[in-house]
């Protein structure tokens, strides 16, 4: 474990907590893409299948359990409890356009052609693009609530910090996973446009409005 990865995990945790707080306090899922949350749930389910078979550390297990349960809870809140506030008309990104390419790529490009390894690879590829429905929805509505933009900033920062973690592990632990690194770079690059808007607008106290 290194500081980059620890802070990255805490950013990821903060993002998920921020999202749950937004939903619970505003009693609304307005502006949230249920599709992205479904994809994140799928990412955790396919990545943490080794939750009970491969013990790494108490920290690792606790975080996996929290990420799994919170992502499933978020999907539940969006599609059942606060369904009335779900803006389905703007959450129209076709998930199959992400699921099928990621599945095919995971079958072709992986470290080992075994079910667990292919599912892990699928989860890595899917995580890289899982935010697209959410970013697409914001581009359609033209704006995002401030707390939603904090959520996105924390979520985008987490994988950016993981890139630093991979650099660190490459130089100091001679540990390198090209699949995770390439997907992590793609994932972080997808947030760049949002990062620019967040820093130039939200941090100036303005609401996140996309140029019409």
């Amino acid at each position: 474990m290194n500081a980059f990865r620890l802070v990255g995990d805490l950013c990821h945790l903060a993002a998920i907590v921020l999202l749950l707080l937004k939903i619970w306090k505003s009693r609304s899922v307005a502006g949230l893409s249920g599709k992205s949350q479904i994809l994140f749930g799928l990412v955790f389910v396919t990545r943490y299948l080794d939750l009970v078979t491969n013990f790494v550390s108490p920290y690792n297990t606790i975080m996996k359990v929290f990420f799994l349960s919170s992502s499933i809870a978020t999907v539940y809140l969006i599609y059942t409890k606060f369904k009335a506030t779900y803006d389905g008309n703007h959450d129209t990104f076709r998930m199959e356009f992400l699921l099928i390419p990621c599945a095919l790529l995971a079958i072709v490009v992986n470290h080992e052609f075994s079910p667990m390894e292919i599912l892990w690879t699928f989860s890595i590829y899917l995580e890289a693009v899982a935010i697209l429905p959410q970013l697409f929805m914001i581009s359609k509505t033209g704006e995002a609530e401030t707390i939603t933009s904090h959520y996105l900033f924390a979520l985008g920062s987490y994988r950016g910090l993981y890139i630093m973690n991979w650099l660190y592990r490459y130089y100091y632990e001679n540990n390198f996973d090209v699949i995770a690194v390439v997907a992590g770079i793609v994932q972080t690059v997808l947030y760049c446009d949002f990062f620019y808007l967040y820093i130039t607008k939200v941090l100036q106290g303005k609401k996140l409005q996309l140029p019409a």
């Binding site: 995990d9 080794d50 491969n54 690792n60 996996k64 470290h111 080992e112 075994s114 973690n165 540990n175």
Partner: peptide, 10 residues
């Protein structure tokens, strides 16, 4: 092979 064995990240 070490990549598949060492899955210690979240």
């Amino acid at each position: 092979k070490e990549n598949t064995a060492r899955k210690d990240e979240l």
